[in-house]
Design a protein around this nucleic acid. Structure first.
Length: 422
RNA sequence: GGAGAGGUGGCGGAGUGGUCGAUCGCGUCGGUCUCGAAAACCGAAGUAGGUGCAAGCCUACCGUGGGUUCGAAUCCCACCCUCUCCGCCA
């Protein structure tokens, strides 16, 4: 959500910022609604003031036994006049809000221009894609050969885009999640948080998936939504709060299933467990003072990168271009991992600085430094990392010619000490 | 799911149609006193919108949204949430 004052102050700059997002100019219409709202509100408030004065006079008249018939008649007329003004004020406000809440966040100046993912820019690479002396398999070939990854049975249970893991692979998924959570809580200062997986509309609105992206979510019969990411509940922890500044930054992490209804709708990645309706993810969320979010963004991304490094994966950091950056984000780093079986870089983490965009939607604030009023917090979220995709990367990266898979040393304590699967 | 009670300012808790944005207590902040502190006393202190160069002024907000009324924290309706008891249940 944008600050209307930003639009008022410089409509052209606002339209220019939106044009980077491919949004047609909207400032003029926003300002028209704003003017209509203010006009109606001003007139309404004058009448409200008169109504309050009348009510007092009538009260006094009645107490002293006087006649108040004329005053009451004026009040009745006033009430009717106010109804129209009130309707106009709320109509204009709703129209203005509808425009503002549908607009994506303003991009950071450092975000490169580009239409789609081909415009993203690689900033850093860790390791080189290896050239193994055997033909590396894709994760589903490895998992199915092991007899521990079963898509047919998952389809029987739930349909397409679900995965059934069993035995050591099921345990490997658990080990990955447990190890990541422990790393972030014990070494990165995040607070482990167990959250509801079903959330209400206000929560979904707060992080920006509503109202525009409702179709991407699973909705329950009672009007709730399955979380698409733990970002939703974790970020909304500060919704409608005025957070004491000394408690910032707040860093939350959680391991949750994520549910995405849109996954697979484009027909991409139809084989394997890369793109599923349900997957596990360890999420990182930070809430900071405005001046700290940029540094926090770097820090958060490094926390996610450490996960990949310690798993022995080949990865690179990419800054998303204007056309690929998500709705709520001002700037996003994707971490891409090299998948030897697929022979491609694939996203395994996405770390975004949303600045005050979500905080405005949530009304999440802290006291202003000068003591006058409040300022909106900054929120950030990142995968630390996607567990399902980490499983894929571990399988493809550490596969052996005989079809077995080496367990990365950091996971062995979580795997009962075994060094190899298969 | 059934029955009942309740949601008021940071917290507790008054207030059941008219100077109530709201008594009071606690907590917080500033001051007086003190060598310093405590106590005591005095004072300050919500959020947002509109308007104004500003000081300020106006408006809204007593869970949320409607309604009744000249006037609603107070009456009516719906919804949300909390608590107690019963039932069911991992």
């Amino acid at each position: 959500m944008h600050d209307i004052r930003l639009v008022r102050a410089d409509p052209a700059a606002f339209d220019a910022a939106m044009s980077r997002r491919g949004v047609a100019p909207v400032a003029a219409e926003i300002l028209a609604q704003d003017a209509a709202r203010r006009g109606a509100q001003q007139a309404l408030q004058e009448k409200q003031a008169r109504r309050n004065a009348l009510a007092k006079e009538i009260g006094q008249a009645k107490r002293s036994g006087g006649n108040s018939v004329a005053l009451e008649a004026e009040g009745a007329a006033l009430r009717d006049a106010m109804a129209a003004l009130e309707a106009e004020a709320s109509r204009a406000e709703a129209a203005q809000t509808a425009l503002l809440e549908a607009l994506p966040n303003i991009l950071d100046a450092a975000v490169p221009d580009g239409q789609d993912e081909t415009g993203n820019v690689v900033l850093h690479q860790h390791g080189e894609p290896p050239r193994p002396n055997f033909a590396p398999k894709q994760h589903f070939e490895i998992g199915e050969a092991l007899g521990q990854m079963d898509f047919a049975t998952a389809a029987k249970l739930a349909g397409a885009r679900f995965t059934l893991l069993s035995g050591p692979l099921a345990r490997l998924e658990r080990a990955l999640g447990q190890w990541m959570l422990t790393l972030h809580t014990e070494e990165h200062g995040y607070t482990e948080t167990a959250v509801p997986l079903l959330v209400n509309a206000a929560t979904v609105y707060g992080t920006g998936q509503l109202p525009k992206f409702e179709d991407d979510l699973f909705k329950t019969t009672d009007g709730r939504y399955l979380i698409a990411t733990a970002e939703m509940p974790l970020t909304n922890l500060v919704r409608e709060e005025i957070v004491p500044e000394p408690t910032l930054p707040r860093r939350y992490t959680g391991l949750t299933p994520c549910f995405r209804s849109e996954a697979g709708s484009a027909g991409r990645d139809t084989r394997g467990m890369l793109r599923q309706h349900q997957f596990q993810k360890v999420e990182l969320v930070s809430v900071t003072r405005p001046e700290d979010s940029e540094a926090e963004h770097e820090r958060m991304t490094r926390c996610a990168e450490r996960v990949l490094t310690e798993l022995g994966l080949i990865w690179r950091r990419v800054v998303l271009c204007s056309g690929d950056t998500g709705f709520s984000a001002a700037k996003t780093y994707d971490l891409e991992v090299w998948l030897p079986g697929q022979g491609a870089w694939r996203e395994i983490s996405s770390c975004s600085n949303c600045r005050d965009f979500q905080a405005r939607r949530m009304n999440a604030r802290m006291r202003a430094p000068d003591g006058k009023g409040t300022v909106f917090l900054h929120t950030l979220n990142g995968s630390g990392v996607a567990v399902g995709r980490a499983l894929i990367a571990v399988l493809e990266t550490h596969q052996q010619p005989d079809g077995s898979v080496q367990v990365p040393p950091v996971l062995r304590p979580w795997m009962g000490g075994i060094e190899r699967i298969g």
